[in-house]
Amino acid sequence: MPVSPAANVLYGLPHSLYTGIARSYLRTQGIAYLELPPAHADFVDRILPTIKRSIIPVLETPDGEIIQDSLDIIDHFERQGVPYPAYPEGPLQSVLAVILQYYGYQAMLRHAMHYRWSYLEQQESFLRHAFATGSDATRAEAIMARMQSYLPALGINAETVPLIERSFEGLLDILEAHFAQHPYLFGGRPSVADYGLIGPMFAHLGRDPVPSDLMKRRSPNVFRWVERMTAPGLDTPDFPGYGSEFIAEDAIPSTLEPLLKHVAEEIFPELTAKFECMDALIEKLQPEDGQPVASKAHQRHVGQVETTFRGAPITSGVAPYSMYILRRADRVLERASDADRSKVQAYLQRFGLDKALPGERGYSVDRRNHVEVWERR
């Protein structure tokens, strides 16, 4: 049955990491929407021919605009104006929020996919039910097999599994202390940092049986934040009188500093190696402005790098989408005063996060016609 044109339609799935981000944002902002699975006829007949790849989430607005990607869905509504804007006004909070958004969107794929697929035997019935939602058992089987095949490109192997699990437990402990004092990462409402983390922390780690059980037993305040992020509006009865603003004067609470150290330890040297891989690719190919980053629309990786995760050697896929996210932090600094720019850079250096920003490289990554493209300046 065709969907009514009067509603925002979110095409996604309950167990999808990136759908979870978009859904959380829409619920928080009170934006009415109808969620449908990608097996729905409207997605197959109208959306797929437009975006040219089978990917979720996709939002179709009442006037027929199609927006693919949770980040772009957020930015679409931010431009229109929402009750709880997700980008802090202070340059330091804003830059850190983008870096934490990147961590959730990209670096935490390793944790999410490990706990989902390495413990398949313990949670198989749950996952089979999830992947058959809006589909059928045969298609679910094929999708599950494809998802499991991604583990090597995410650096998940026998040597890294203990490190990934210690990393997740450490992250839970850090966030537990923070969310005991603050409802969201930067204060009284979620920022893009919260939306970045909620993807893996809900869809995989807060929903699949094995990691969600660990989260509930080890870090109840973190699980409460997951509930808060997936509820309508600001679900903060446990913080009466806190308010809905970001922490004043662009301040960073001391409880957030261990998270920044943790993130720096997680993303480097891998992120630096990925930037260098893209630099070499640009030098070799000399692409024109607007040229797709890959020859096929569904292809997200443009190469692989040999690097390390917490000291263990890994092979990791290089997705230009990482630069697409982090360029937002560069743009914050471009708009900042000289004094604010120096303040932010000094703070990032304290935690080893200064190299998380791409900086001037002679190129960037944009999204046009629903695919990532090289942007040449």
Rank of each mutant, 00 (worst) to 15 (best):
H76P: 03
Q123S: 05
M147C: 08
A132R: 06
E159P: 05
A142Q: 09
F131G: 00
S149A: 08
L96F: 06
L109W: 03
I174H: 01
S118P: 04
E141W: 15
A137T: 13
E121C: 13
F168M: 06
A180R: 04
A112S: 06
R116T: 02
Q106D: 13
P85S: 11
Q68V: 09
R139M: 11
T160W: 03
I55N: 04
H182Y: 09
H178N: 05
E78F: 01
Y105S: 09
T160K: 02
T133A: 13
E65T: 15
E159Q: 13
Q148D: 10
V161R: 10
A158C: 11
I55T: 08
L96A: 03
G155M: 03
A180Q: 07
L71H: 00
A153I: 10
L163K: 06
R146I: 13
P83M: 09
L127I: 08
G134Y: 13
H182I: 13
I174L: 08
L71K: 00
K52M: 10
P85Q: 12
Y184Q: 05
I143R: 08
P49H: 15
G155V: 02
Y119L: 04
Y87W: 12
L175Y: 01
T61G: 01
I174Y: 01
F77S: 00
L59D: 00
W117Q: 06
P162W: 11
W117T: 04
R53G: 08
P83A: 11
Y103F: 12
A86T: 03
Q101R: 03
P62H: 11
P152I: 04
P152E: 06
P152Q: 04
R166I: 14
I74H: 00
Q106A: 09
V98W: 00
L71M: 10
I156R: 01
